[in-house]
């Protein structure tokens, strides 16, 4: 993507993440989060959760991936603001969707505001906004 090809109202390509125990554990350990609720189903259930669940760092990581898979390598993520809902658990695919709601030129880049939603069969896992920019004149 380049700044000129994105318009307010555009919807991002939907990304469906097949959430498994491996996805949850891989993200937890890559983010150095060793809380048992993110790798131990029995422990998580003992705490009242339906199963082990994705940690917030991993959710933010997948939001960033969702945005830059669409916007491309020139994109710079400036802000990821999410409200956390139900848990992301094994066997419940997470469906990421988003829409461009604002665009503004600042200095040498165009700054986009994108609403995002990651939901599974339990409801919304994360909803919020991402601010991402692209250069007005690509460097290459």
């Amino acid at each position: 993507m380049s700044a000129g090809t994105i318009h307010v109202g555009d919807e991002l390509p939907v990304f469906e993440l097949p959430v498994t125990s491996t996805v949850i554990v891989a993200g937890a350990i890559a983010s150095r989060d060793f809380m048992p609720a993110h790798h131990d189903s029995e422990y998580a259930r003992g705490q009242g959760a339906p199963d082990m669940f994705m940690n917030i760092l991993t959710t933010n990581g997948y939001v960033s991936k969702f945005i830059t898979d669409w916007a491309g390598p020139e994109a710079m993520v400036k802000k990821i603001a999410i409200r956390l809902g139900g848990p992301a658990i094994p066997g419940q695919p997470l469906r990421f969707s988003g829409q461009v709601i604002a665009a503004e030129d600042k200095n040498d880049e165009r700054v986009f505001e994108v609403t995002i939603r990651a939901a599974n069969d339990l409801g919304d896992h994360a909803t919020g906004t991402v601010v991402v920019s692209l250069p007005l004149e690509p460097s290459s």
Binding site: G61, V63, S64, P73, E74, M76, V77, S139, S140
Partner: peptide
């Protein structure tokens, strides 16, 4: 990465807290 405005490899932004 060197061909982008990053000018070279950068860390994934969401790794900040990591």
């Amino acid at each position: 990465a060197a061909e982008t405005r990053m000018g070279g490899v950068v860390a994934p932004p969401a790794m900040l807290q990591t």
